[in-house]
Simulated scan of single mutants.
Amino acid sequence: MFRGSMVALVTPMKADNSLDWDALHKLVEWHIEKGTHAIVAVGTTGESATLNMGEHADVIRKVVDQVKGRVPVIAGTGANSTSEALELTQAAKDAKADACLLVTPYYNKPSQEGLYLHHKVIAESVAIPQLLYNVPGRTAVDMLPETVSRLAVIDNIVGIKEATGSMERLQALQAVTQDDFLFISGDDGTALEFMRLGGCGEISVTANVVPDLTSKMCELVLEGKVEEAREIDERLASLHSALFLEANPIPVKWAVARMGLMGNAIRLPLTPLAESYRGILEQAMRDAGVTL
């Protein structure tokens, strides 16, 4: 079910900070039309940290209801409070999401035992497929392979989004998990190599801007057509980089707005992309074939 290009969907907002449901609807349809293989609703790229609990659950429910099973919907339900993550995960199950994506608890820096117990409690409490999400550059905590190995034996923990960009980490994880455990890249710049070495896909920021090329690249590498996939990936290389000129999702929201797909609104403490970076990002978009 979880394979190929899975967009880490941005959450459109209006100038008054309210959620833009019309733009969200259009984005979802655009992604399905352009070949995106799955949609991640309210992941960290979807500004999960600035949405309140009601908004968070509403976005998940609206995306699931709109998609109507055409592609899988993965709900971002991680939090640095286990009780909050439990509530969000239950809301995603109630909304009939296909799976949940749970980032490691950020800021409070739990021990490996804390990480294990956090995910174990949620998995055993809510009967929905769950993906672990390790992104130490953002959370200040690194879920080690030994901890992933302990969690992977829980039936509904089905895989991990690994965003370190390290192929050595991927191989270490493969060595300590069962054959059907899923490995999903969380780093656009290294996703091709990650899939070549056994990953099943990527949860992509870049797919917000070029969903057709991202999905085609994933399809090719998963079919073993690595050189053809590499041609696309090289075309996207400057965009992969430019989308992190400032903290994600600042650049990607600006890029999607620049394409006319939504307004350029983002919630504090995040701010719109600095003027000095806009020309760089525009050029990277043009290099990737985006018409501006």
Rank of each mutant, 00 (worst) to 15 (best):
G279R: 13
G4K: 09
A92P: 11
Y116G: 08
A242K: 02
R196M: 13
M6N: 08
L27V: 13
H119E: 05
H37Y: 08
V126H: 15
M167V: 13
L9W: 06
K34E: 15
W254I: 07
V135M: 05
G198P: 10
G189A: 11
A97S: 04
N108K: 01
N248D: 03
L239Q: 09
R258Q: 10
E282L: 14
M13E: 08
L245M: 07
K253N: 10
T177M: 00
L270S: 03
D65H: 10
G165L: 00
E193D: 14
M1I: 10
H119K: 05
T45D: 08
S48D: 07
W254N: 11
Y106P: 00
F181W: 01
I74V: 15
K14P: 11
H31K: 10
G199W: 15
T36S: 06
P105H: 07
K68C: 10
L101R: 05
A172L: 06
A140R: 12
M53N: 14
Q90E: 11
E234S: 13
S149L: 08
L102I: 11
E227L: 14
L88Y: 00
E234N: 15
A8N: 07
E275I: 06
F244P: 04
V226T: 12
D180S: 03
A23R: 03
K14E: 08
E168Y: 03
V121A: 05
M13K: 09
R169C: 13
L9T: 01
R70F: 07
A265K: 05
I122K: 08
E227M: 15
N156Q: 03
E87K: 08
L182S: 12
K225N: 13
T139G: 00
G201K: 03
A38V: 01
A257N: 03
I154L: 15
I32D: 02
L281F: 10
I39V: 00
A41L: 12
D16L: 05
Q178D: 03
L131V: 00
G260H: 03
T177C: 02
T147Y: 04
G78W: 04
A95S: 14
V64E: 10
Y133F: 01
S18D: 00
T139C: 01
I184Q: 02
F2E: 02
I39W: 00
N156G: 10
P110T: 09
N156K: 03
A163Q: 02
K161W: 07
N52T: 11
L281H: 07
S81Q: 08
E193S: 14
L220I: 04
Y133I: 00
H37D: 15
G43P: 07
R286L: 11
G35S: 02
T291A: 07
I157K: 02
L27M: 05
I128P: 01
A8I: 07
G201A: 08
I184W: 02
G201C: 06
D212C: 06
G43R: 04
Y133Q: 04
V121Q: 04
L9K: 01
D187M: 04
V28T: 11
N52S: 08
Y133C: 01
L115M: 07
I154W: 07
T177H: 01
I122R: 04
P110C: 09
V290Q: 12
G114Q: 01
A265Y: 08
D142T: 06
I128Q: 00
Q174I: 02
L102Q: 06
P105N: 05
D155Q: 14
N248C: 05
A41V: 07
